[in-house]
Amino acid sequence: MERLLKLNRLMPRWKVLESRSRFLMFVLEGTTESFVRVLLRIMTEEVPTIAIHEVVIETNSSFLSDSFLAQRLRFIPLTSDLANLMYYSTECPNCNGRGYCHLCSVEFRLSAKCVAGDVTSKDLVTSNPSVLPFDFFDPTGTAIVKLKPGEELTLKAIARKGIGKDHIKWSPLAATSAKYFCPSDIRINEELMETLTLEQKKQWVASYPTDLFQVDPQTQKVVLCRPGNGYHNMPLNPEARGVIEVFEKKDTFVFTVETTGALKASQLLMNALAILKRKLLSFRVLEDHFLDHDLAGIDKLDSEN
C-alpha cells in the first residue's frame, strides 16, 4: 500500500469475474481506494442516459392522478445506447435548445382503454426504435397503472438525455447496486506454526473448513489451499490468533455493478472511463499567460515586494 502511494503512475489490472448484460463483477488490482471511489461516483452521477422528462396527458380517467402517473413514467429505464450520440436538450444546435427535435428527444405515445391486464411499459410506442423501455421484449413489462372498465389513458411523453447529477432518474445504477470491498487474504506465521507437532497441526487443520488448509505430506508444513480468495466471514479460532493472520489486501478491490437496464454494465464502465478522461482534459489546457506568469513567479514576487 505504501509502495503504491509512492509510484508516480499506477498500472491497475482488471480481472472480470462475472459478466452478464446488466451485471458485472470484476477485480481491480494495484490501485487505490480513491480511484475506485471516483469510478463509482462517475458511474452513479455522470454517465448520461435517456429518461422521460416531460409528460403531456391528454385523457386520464384512471385512479392515479396525472402527476403520479408522470412520476411512475419517468423512473422507467430506457435503453440508452444512443445517449452518447444525442444532444442535451439545452445544447441542441438543431432546435436551438427547445428540446423537441429528433436529435435531442424521443417521443413516446401511450393510449390504452381498459385493456385486459395492466398498462405496462410495453404499451409505450416510441418514435425512435433504438430507445425502448428496458424490458420491452420481456414477457411482462413494468406495470404503470391498472384500468377499470370504461377508463381511458392517452398521453405523450418526451424523453431526453441527462445525467444522474441532475436527477436520479438519469442514473444508470440502481440505488446501492454498485459497491466494492477489499478482499482478505491469510498469512500463516511459519515460525509459530513450526512449534506445533505434526499431530497438533493435523488437529489444527481439522478445525477449519476442510479444504482451507492442508498439511503438506512431504515438508509437514501447513499450507493454504485457496490463496487469494475472500475470507471475510471466516470464523477465527481464538486459539489460532498469532498463528494465522487475516488481512485486507488494500490495493485490490472487488467491484460489483448492476445497472437499471439503461446501459449494459460493461458499456457503463467504458463510458465512465471515457467521461473521467474527458473531464480531466477539460481543465488541463490553461491559457498561456498563466504559464508565463507562473514561470516568472520568483522574479515577479521580488518585484512585487
Binding site: M11, L276, K277, L280
Partner: peptide, 10 residues
C-alpha cells in the same frame, strides 16, 4: 499521469 493511467485501464 491520470490520463495515461485511464488509457492503460481502457
Amino acid at each position: 499521469d491520470l490520463d495515461r493511467e485511464l488509457d492503460h485501464m481502457k
